[in-house]
């Protein structure tokens, strides 16, 4: 699944949920700070993307992938992402500015840093997972 194709649908869904005109939505925009998405908008956006792509989306997919990659090493301790966890997140999500992936960042705060690209990547990841499941 190509990022550009997913981006077009994501833009439409964000526009429908928040009223932000799709032509102003950029890949690098952060959902919360720059597009003004709040937690209920995010639920709305995820529900709509689930419906469009016939997938189950979880914003914690990124976290699950990080945990899987890290094996026994802790991803977070008491809700705060470990330095090793931050490194893995940085690899998975290079679109998030490195200077924001700082020590002390909590799992909750990480979601606030998600960009439009992060959202597209979560969708693509889930579509590919579903395809892999079907193939197996």
């Amino acid at each position: 699944m190509e990022l550009a194709a997913v981006l077009e649908k994501v833009k439409t869904v964000i526009e429908n949920s928040t009223g932000t005109p799709r032509e102003t939505i950029q890949l690098e925009h952060t959902l919360f700070d720059e597009l003004g998405v709040d937690s209920i908008d995010l639920v709305d956006i995820l529900f709509e993307l689930e419906f469009l792509y016939k997938i189950q989306l979880k914003i914690s997919d990124i976290e699950s992938r990080a945990r899987a990659k890290m094996g026994d090493e802790p991803y977070e301790i008491d809700g705060t992402i470990t330095p090793a966890g931050l490194q893995v997140i940085g690899e998975f999500m290079p679109e998030i500015s490195k200077d924001k992936l700082v020590e002390g960042l909590t799992v909750h705060q990480l979601v606030q840093l998600f960009t439009v690209e992060s959202l597209c990547k979560i969708v693509i990841y889930r579509i590919e997972e579903e395809e892999r499941k079907k193939e197996n």
Partner: peptide, 9 residues
């Protein structure tokens, strides 16, 4: 049921 209701707005 919130899922379809969210979609319907």
């Amino acid at each position: 049921i919130l899922r379809p209701m969210f979609r319907q707005k």
